[in-house]
Design a protein around this nucleic acid. Structure first.
Lengths: 345, 345
DNA sequence: CTGAAAGCGCTAACAT
DNA sequence: ATGTTAGCGCTTTCAG
């Protein structure tokens, strides 16, 4: 046991201690520890041996001050309990570990003001880059404040329009169209859309695609079939209850994400109905749980693991070349048909 | 847009720039920005205004070098895709945000060697504390290396025996006993235990409780009813298949966690059986999905959100007083009975 | 191949 | 109430 009474890590062994021990300079020690070819192999080995013997621990804060690099990547998400973001975060963490980076995490629950506070704090740690999923209603400035501070930033999953920053996400409109086409083919005409708001790109894209898709088929868009809100189980549960109470209830629903779809399926069951029998439900994301449900959830796979990996790749590319033109990397979603959808009647 | 051609954040505005602008010292600026009562209100306001105008960003690396505090808490987990750990991490992140700390994240997939590498890296960032769930088979030294380096450490969920470090987790033995008692009451006698290994405290505690519990009731422990392994869906799926292939299959199973239980339920379905009708399944954790399944999963609630909060509280307490005697904070699990268990015959 | 010296941006004594 | 000074631990010229 060591550590100091004041709780600090002061008094710990530094380059100077190793240097003193061996009668060399700290410069030599520093180079040796990084196995620089500039130092003789014999010296290097002696230094490394002494470092180990003394229990030396590299101090990244000190190095960062000197090099202006931290090897940290900040990740800002709304919520990590949603398995979609859990899977996305896991992919990011794993990819970044491979390039020697460590994740600094902040969350802000779709609250733009909290997002601003969290991003400001993250900025102060001077991460080498940042991966952000913007909060519902977030302003462009909340992200440009980061990139203007010289911190490369990649938006993931959601984007702020015309912000001039990299984005890696799914083709939301295509996903919604694919889901709706599937339902149309099954004979559905009264279809609800549950979850998402027009103040987040994923919500707006999907809701607009819904409006357009219906219009193309000559179906009137009925506002009460568009349940807006965050993609939670509760929204799905409450939403389907309200929809079933309508004079003319829908026969199917596309949901903002799988959690919402789970809520819908549960709500149906509470009303004595069953998804895939009396009603059709399409989710979005294809989280691990989706295929395990009974019935399995028909859903739009958004490839979150690939999304995470590609966001990292893009960020690393921008870190080596900050002059890169911002790019939108859009991954094509794929419909996975399972048991929660069925033909009408 | 700023940022430098070399990608560094060098040349950014520092205390010195603000000081020069106002003709005061950096000390005054530093104090002003932290709203110290030592500096006159008028000065403070001027400094803060100039700081804002110049787009000053506090540099925590520099401050850390001086203060030996980083306000980062490192969190080391095996896996964050498992919703149990997702919920635990979310609770930790949220609690720590409340005390001005930011989470630095590392994962190591139950690989002790990888855990050592990850913890070493995390140590180098000099976090003010660390919350760790040890990997399967991890040695005591992998954790004492951290605390010996003067970094307060709290084990969460799993613990290494006799390591002399704080621990916040569930009463695993009690959980297993409660689950088994429930099954015994329903008339089950041939009960399997699926998941967990003797090289992780949660696994060992539960498997030992299983052995003891059966012995107390005069039931022989049959090794083939004890399926060892990590708590994955795949293990549950493969495990139940193997168990059903036995000459005398069990009528019930307690699972290491809910994921494993989900795998079991799915495996049952593949064999034309249904949990809660032909077989009884008990999970562990009570992740959000557990109650939404059909049938709902009977499971042992391990109160992961509370666990996360209490781990943070303990860590913060140890940060202010490193001399605290290590404590085991054990939360009593509670059985949540749903539809996946039923009486025999 | 190694050493000396400067300095990254900040804070904390200490002095005024 | 503010300034001066030193230094946290490291890396990087620049000399030798």
């Amino acid at each position: 046991m060591s550590g100091f009474a004041d709780g600090s890590a002061r008094g710990r062994v530094t380059l100077q201690h190793i240097a003193d021990e061996l009668g060399v300079s700290t410069a030599t020690v520093s180079l040796s520890l990084r196995s620089s070819p500039l130092v003789a192999a014999a010296t290097r080995d002696k230094v490394q041996a002494v470092a180990r013997a003394l229990g030396y621990i590299y101090n990244r804060s000190a190095a960062s001050l000197r090099t202006a690099r931290t090897n940290m990547i900040a990740v800002g998400f709304n919520d990590i309990v949603n398995p979609y973001f859990g899977e996305l975060l896991a992919a990011i963490e794993e990819t970044l570990a491979g390039s020697g980076h460590t994740v600094l995490l902040g969350t802000y629950c779709d609250d733009p003001a909290k997002q601003d506070r969290v991003l400001r704090t993250l900025k102060e740690y001077r991460p080498d880059g940042m991966i952000v999923c913007p909060a519902n209603g977030a302003a462009a400035a909340s992200l440009t404040d980061v990139s203007d501070a010289g911190i490369p930033l990649v938006q993931v999953s959601r984007e702020i329009s015309d912000v001039g920053l990299d984005f890696v996400g799914s083709n939301d409109a295509l996903g919604t169209r694919t889901a709706l086409d599937h339902l149309f083919e099954l004979g559905h005409r009264r279809i609800a859309i549950i979850g998402g708001t027009d103040a987040m790109s994923t919500g707006a894209n999907r809701r607009n695609a819904y409006r357009a898709c219906l219009a193309e088929r000559g179906i009137a868009v009925e506002p009460e079939l568009m349940v807006a809100g965050f993609g939670t189980r509760d929204l799905g549960f409450a939403g389907i209850h309200a929809l079933l109470d309508l004079a003319e209830p829908p026969t199917a629903a596309v949901c903002f994400n799988d959690l919402t779809a789970f809520g819908v399926m549960l709500g149906l069951r509470h009303r004595g109905r069953e998804a895939g029998r009396d009603f059709s439900v399409v989710g979005s994301d294809d989280v691990k749980e989706a295929e395990l449900w009974a019935p399995g959830l028909t859903t739009v796979k958004n490839h979150q693991a690939e999304m995470g990996r590609r966001a990292c790749e893009r960020l690393l590319a921008r870190m080596v070349n900050p002059a890169l033109t911002p790019e939108r990397i859009v991954i094509a979603p794929t419909l996975v048909v399972r048991g929660s959808t069925t033909s009408i009647g």
